[in-house]
């Protein structure tokens, strides 16, 4: 589902490449952690998958799309297949919970009757039925992240990318978010989550890909965060 082949990425402002000859593949329906200290290249890797950046060398594939070769016009096709959540939620402050979720469908031109049917379903999936008309500032951090996950998932993407989704949340809430991501993973969605939260990685016992200075230094199918750090 996700495949990187000898991918390198250098930024003009830095002498050291952010990613250095990375080859890694994540299969359909898999759940994988992407770990490593700050600056190890986790975010760069996610940005390449979203075509926010283009690799300096190598090929990036998502499903059947060669991401680096996509024309400007076809980038939306990629992003409609890849959902994305972030540490800072990125909700629209002036829209209600259901409007926030509906927005993701409106902007890709989904018909209104579809939106009216799908949005309550996905809010129920993330456990926010009954909070549809709240504004984001009325919600707790955990609830806001659920809205963000609902928004990322409402168009049933093939892949869900999560960049430190629990970074702003305490342990119990983080655990609930992980359960939600697991539930989404069970629907067949590939989940790739960048994190440096030891507890979560250690408790989930899922595949772990570790980056260090832009290189893959470990790839274990049922890994832990690691003792060295």
């Amino acid at each position: 589902m996700i495949r990187l082949e000898h991918v390198s990425k250098s930024y003009r402002t830095s002498t050291r490449p952010a990613l250095d000859d990375v080859t890694v593949a994540v299969g359909k329906g898999e759940f994988a952690f992407l770990i490593g200290p700050s600056g190890s290249g986790k975010s760069t890797l996610l940005r390449l998958l979203l075509r926010e950046e283009v690799a300096s060398a190598g090929d990036v594939y998502v499903a059947d799309l060669n991401v680096g070769r996509l024309s400007q016009r076809r980038i939306p096709q990629l992003r409609q297949r890849v959902g994305c959540v972030f540490q800072d939620f990125r909700l629209l402050a002036n829209k209600t919970v259901s409007e926030n979720v509906a927005f993701a469908l409106e902007v890709i031109g989904k018909p209104r009757h579809t939106i009216r049917k799908v949005v309550p379903e996905v809010l129920e999936l993330v456990g926010l039925e009954g909070k549809a008309d709240r504004m984001p500032h009325e919600l707790s951090g955990g609830e806001q992240q659920r809205v963000a996950i609902a928004r990322a998932f409402v168009n049933r993407p093939l892949v869900l990318l999560a960049d430190e989704p629990t970074g702003n949340l305490d342990r119990d809430i983080s655990h609930e978010i992980m359960l939600l991501l697991e539930r989404i993973n069970r629907t067949g969605t590939t989940v790739l989550m960048a994190t440096h939260d030891h507890t979560i990685v250690d408790s989930m016992r899922r595949r772990v890909v570790e980056l260090h200075l832009g290189q893959v230094v470990r790839d274990e199918s049922r890994g832990v965060y690691g003792v060295s750090r």
Binding site: C84, A93, V107, N155
Partner: peptide, 17 residues
Amino acid sequence: RAEVGVMRLTGASRWYT
């Protein structure tokens, strides 16, 4: 920019944004 950011990430076409 927040709306536009979300639009880009959710795969809205350039016309839409």
